[in-house]
Design a protein around this nucleic acid. Structure first.
Lengths: 198, 198
DNA sequence: CCTACCGATCGGTAGG
DNA sequence: CCTACCGATCGGTAGG
């Protein structure tokens, strides 16, 4: 199943979901098209599985890195790091997750959307915490959430592993931009060198 | 032809290009499918026409609003205004322009991409001017271009005409975010009330 | 997991 | 701009 998913991700990323035929997937893993139906009910469910898996993994990864971080500045830094790491490491899946939502049934769409909302809400609550503590200056929480997430997500559309910047430099640069948006001047805000004492 | 394009835009926006059949387009404008071939060579060219038109209109609109604006702060404000106006007013086309690039031939893709590059370059040169005059504080021009354009373009994915904010408020809010990113503190930077004397 | 197949649909064309 | 049509392909299934 792992090989089938991987083949599906590659092909859907390259050709889009409607133009990816099950015969292409089958050929890539050395099977006959009909045999794929032992692994999913229909073509739509295959797409749904791929999207659900990546969204769930993202949420789990975020939970792991966010636990015990009650300080909004530290939490925000962790969020940005997780986001950029995940969206560059698994860029094809996250790309599919944005482009192929129309390929789902209404019910599947609602389900995936709920996962996306949970993720977005995590970010929003960090902003709210930071505003309460006075670390961030935010006027409209919702618009600011949209703006920052769009900025961070876009990285996956152009990022290449052998680019002129390391992933660490990228994270540092975008962290700086985000803190500028929030007018956060705390000395530990953007620098990536200081180890938090936990 | 205008009706055919409009029907195509609506359908491609809703179902995606590969899933939009020429029979659907024909039905929407009260024609037979075969008759559409009097208006374009093949399905791909139809998509190409739609994309090219919107990209060209955007560039023309930008040129119109940018001429004679040598001051980087004023130019940036004009750019943001044009961008948000266009991406909300013609959101379906701009959505298609980002989602359906795979539907083009290599040659068509390069052509559309060139138009996109010209637009991006306009923004980049405003940033460079502002850095030279000292109005903007920018470290990496390219990353900052990507980040800001992604932020602004994202608006078209959630904007609804009857939302809680007017388009003017939206422009003002995002203008403020952009100037924060650039650490631009000039008094006329974000306020939308002061009429430029030209 | 394979063979063999079906019904449906689609882009595109001929000829008018 | 229509009628009529073709070749190709696709998702999905039966039966093993």
């Amino acid at each position: 199943m792992a090989a089938i998913s991987e083949a599906g991700i590659d092909l859907i990323f390259q050709y889009g979901f409607p133009s990816t035929t099950l015969r292409m997937v089958a050929k890539k893993v050395g099977m006959q098209a009909g045999s794929l139906y032992n692994y999913f009910e229909d073509k739509q469910s295959f797409l749904y599985q791929i999207m659900k898996r990546s969204r769930q993994d993202l949420l789990e990864e975020l939970d792991r890195k966010l636990t015990g971080n009650s300080d909004p500045v530290r939490a925000l830094k962790a969020f940005i790091e997780v986001h950029i790491e995940f969206y560059t490491e698994r860029s094809k899946e996250m790309f599919i997750g944005r482009m192929e939502l129309r390929g789902l049934t209404d019910e599947q769409f609602r389900d995936i959307n709920a996962l996306r909302d949970r993720y977005e809400w995590q970010f929003t609550s960090i902003l709210e915490n930071g505003r309460r503590t006075g670390d961030f200056i935010v006027d409209d929480i919702r618009l600011t959430t949209y703006a920052i997430l769009a900025m961070l997500t876009d990285i996956s559309t152009w990022y290449r592993p052998r680019g002129r910047m390391t992933k660490g430099q990228l994270i540092e640069y975008y962290t700086n931009l985000v803190f500028r948006i929030l007018r956060c001047e705390r000395p530990d805000a953007t620098g990536g060198s200081d180890k938090p004492a936990d």
